[in-house]
Design a protein around this nucleic acid. Structure first.
Length: 441
RNA sequence: CGGAGCGUAGCGCAGCCUGGUAGCGCAUCAGUCUGGGGGACUGGGGGUCGUGGGUUCAAAUCCCGCCGCUCCGACCA
């Protein structure tokens, strides 16, 4: 993409309403624009990141055996009356009346609807187990939206729902999601810490929150340093291996890790100096709640002996749009965002310092073409801005690599390659630069 | 939902107290020069001062209502 053609409305100054770093940087980098409290438009740069995060989530859900569907954002109130949550949910639920005076709502979550889908189609225990997920916009009319997309009222969430014939199967479904979540976050360069959690309005008796550490996190958390040293990229992917999954979950929950509410100072004290106190951002939350919805809504299938089986269910959420903010909270410096390569909106930025100079134009154009051919999805700054403005902008939007083409290098046949994260710069030939960017770090 | 604050050009702000021509920086447009960390100069464009009412000869400014946004707290993917 040529920057001269790209819609990237960056700001030099920070709008007053943005208080935390991710919100400030998302506005300054032209990723989002606020439309109302907790409601945002996603501009091209932000949309690219959102899409890349969603794709990683999708790949790991698919790998674990979950199947993608797409449910509507608007739901009939009737479904929620069946579960009893229509009255319980309170003012956080955005209620709507259609032209026929029917009560509708903008979904804050989808347990009722997915249970309805299962009820309409599941007939036999052979239809189980099943895990259905979608990536869909939700609306929760938060009393106090804040922190930009980290606590919006409208937000993009991946929510999955599992159905099993018995508690043991449900436990396995839960474990699969547990591992898939850790893999998902690890791919984004995030170390998510699973912590036992309250089940809240979803209900149920087994639940974990996945929390990443960041200074601006909303809750205080305490964790065993040994967990932070774990390599989560080597988690097993044989999702059919029941014992293996359980072992992996046990391994990841065998450390002390607790949010403020669940923190037990007496137990934690035994960790000594391994105890890390920090702030955390919740990026995922999983629940096993048994037959709460299936029983209430009359979902059942026929068992092998003709008996009625009420499926055991769980639900599993990842805050996709929140992750954009969370990733920035975890990856930034004074100059701007520092994207992990896996979610970066572009793989690299090419800066032509002297647009209009034949040698620079030729070299930058060649570099841009070769990066594209190599699948690196580069952003080429071909604007006639001053050098400083280009550097500042490229730092702000945080692409992992910056390739600087200037008159000096054009003469010498080299390009300056800058690693955004470390700031390290080196002069390389185009071939060497390309090799560096296409080889794993 | 309790407490606090803020709405003046795209963004950041001044002007309000003490009523009288709506201003500054950045951004933007045109041009010239510049050219390796948000460069310089010249000349432009852009505002029913959130909104409705009131007071007044006169309201961005004083008074009242409403709306919106933000922060702190309680609640949440």
């Amino acid at each position: 993409m040529r920057l001269s053609q790209f819609f990237l409305p960056t700001l030099r100054e920070t709008p007053t309403e943005a208080q935390i770093v991710s919100h400030r940087l998302m506005l300054r980098a032209g990723m989002v624009r606020q439309q109302a409290a907790g409601i945002y438009s996603w501009l091209p740069l932000g949309h690219r990141v959102l899409t890349r995060i969603a794709q990683i989530v999708r790949e790991e859900q698919d790998r674990s055996g979950a199947q993608e569907i797409l449910m509507p954002t608007i739901q009939p109130a009737e479904l929620w009356r069946e579960s009893g949550r229509y009255e319980d949910y309170g003012k956080e639920m955005l209620r709507i009346t259609d032209r026929h005076e029917r009560e509708m709502l903008y979904g804050p979550t989808n347990e009722e609807m997915v249970t309805e889908i299962a009820r309409a189609s599941f007939r036999s225990y052979r239809d189980l187990p099943r895990n259905l997920y979608h990536i869909q916009w939700k609306f929760r009319d938060e009393v106090r939206p804040r922190f930009g997309v980290m606590r919006g009222r409208e937000f993009l969430m991946k929510d999955a729902y599992s159905f099993d014939a018995d508690p043991a199967g449900a436990r396995h479904s839960y474990n699969k999601m547990f591992i898939a979540y850790l893999r998902t976050f690890a791919r984004m360069g995030l170390k998510a810490i699973p912590m036992r959690a309250d089940t809240g309005p979803i209900g149920g008796d087994l639940s974990h929150e996945f929390i990443i550490l960041a200074e601006t996190g909303e809750s205080a958390v305490f964790v065993d340093r040994d967990f932070l040293d774990q390599n989560l990229l080597d988690l097993p992917v044989d999702y059919d291996d029941v014992a293996g999954m359980q072992a992996a979950v046990d391994r990841c929950t065998g450390f002390y890790a607790a949010t403020d509410e669940k923190h037990d100072p007496a137990v934690a004290a035994k960790l000594g100096d391994r105890l890390v106190g920090a702030r955390g951002i919740e990026v995922g939350h999983i629940f096993y709640f048994g037959t709460k919805y299936s029983a209430a809504m009359g979902l059942s299938v026929q068992g092998p002996n003709g008996e009625k089986i009420v499926p055991e269910m769980g639900s599993y959420g990842i805050g996709v749009s929140r992750l954009v903010g969370a990733l920035i909270e975890a990856n930034h410096d004074d100059a701007g965002i520092v994207w992990p390569a896996a979610v970066a909106p572009f793989g690299a930025g090419v800066i032509n310092l002297r647009v209009g100079d034949a040698a620079c134009d030729a070299m930058a154009g060649d570099l841009y073409a070769r990066l594209r051919a190599a699948g690196l999805d580069p952003l080429y700054d071909d604007r006639t801005e001053s050098a400083g403005a280009k550097f500042a902008n490229m730092d702000l939007i945080g692409l992992p690599w910056q390739l600087v083409v200037g008159p000096r290098g054009a003469k010498a046949g080299t390009v300056e390659v800058k690693d955004r994260r470390s700031g390290a710069k080196e002069e390389l030939s185009l071939d060497a630069a390309l090799a560096k960017l296409t080889s794993p770090r």
